[in-house]
Design a protein around this nucleic acid. Structure first.
Lengths: 117, 117
DNA sequence: GCGACGTACAACCATATGGTTGTACGAGTG
DNA sequence: CACTCGTACAACCATATGGTTGTACGTCGC
C-alpha cells in the first residue's frame, strides 16, 4: 500500500476559496504559515487549520526552515485529483462514441473502467 | 454573466464517494433518482439530496422522461474543475522553469496568472 | 537566560452536512 | 376515478466544519 488517494479529503480540501488560494500561493513554497495568514482576513489559527486540512489531504507539505515552517504544494495530489476528473470525462466521451456507433452491435460489450475507490 | 463556476460547490459536491459514484453512473444518463438510489445503502431521500447537491454544483442535470427524472452528468462542469487543477499544475511547472533558469534575471518579471474567483 | 517570533493545539460557538422519517404532489396504469 | 410509482420537500437529529480566543512550546537574537 502506497497510501491510496483519499478523494474525499482532496476534494473537500479544495472546496474552500481560502484553501485554494493557499494552494496557489504555496506553489512557490516560500511562505510560512504566519506569512500565508497575513493575506487573509481571519485569525492565524484559522489559517493554520486550513493548512492542516490541506496537509491531511496531501495537497501541501510543511518543511521546517529556521523557526518557520514553509508550506509547499504537492503537485502529485493535484495530478491525482485531475486524473479522476479526466477519467469521468473519458467515460463521457466513451458514451458518445458508443452512441454514435450504435450501428447494429453484438450487444455484449459493456466494458467498464475502474474509476474510484 | 454566464454564471461563473462555483468551485466551492463543485469541489464540495465531489468530496463524497456516493456523489462521485452518482456522477460516474449518470454519465450514461439513463437512470432516474429512484434507480440510482437502489445502488446505495441509504434512503431514497438521502440519494435525492446528493443529486440535488450535484445539481446545484452544475455537475448533473435532470430531465423529465415519463414519470421519472433522468439524471445526466454535465461534462462541462467536470472540465471546469479539471482546468482549475491544471492551472495550479502549470503554476508549479512555471515555478520549476523559473528555478532552473535562475541565471541572472532582470528580477522584475513576476507575471501572475488569474487562477480563481 | 530572556523576550519575541512562529507554530501548535485545546476549548468553545454557530452553522453546514449527511442521514433519517413522514407527508404531498404529478404522471402514468388499472 | 382510484391506485401506484417516482419525485419533492419539510422536520428532525448527530456530527463535521469554519471560525474564534487562550495557552504552550521551540527557535533565534540580544
Amino acid at each position: 500500500m502506497i497510501a491510496p488517494p483519499d478523494f474525499d479529503r482532496i476534494f473537500g480540501a479544495l472546496a474552500d476559496a481560502t484553501r485554494r488560494d493557499i494552494v496557489r500561493r504555496a506553489v512557490d513554497g516560500e511562505e510560512g504559515v504566519a506569512e500565508l495568514a497575513s493575506h487573509y482576513p481571519m485569525s492565524f489559527a484559522a489559517v493554520q487549520k486550513h493548512v492542516a486540512i490541506l496537509e491531511r489531504a496531501g495537497l501541501v507539505t510543511k518543511e521546517r526552515v529556521g523557526r518557520r515552517k514553509v508550506v509547499r504544494t504537492n503537485p502529485e495530489a493535484l495530478r491525482v485529483a485531475r486524473d479522476l476528473l479526466n477519467r469521468y470525462e473519458e467515460l463521457w466521451r466513451g458514451r458518445i462514441d458508443r452512441m454514435t456507433a450504435l450501428v447494429a452491435e453484438p450487444s455484449g460489450t459493456t466494458s467498464r473502467t475502474e474509476t474510484d475507490q
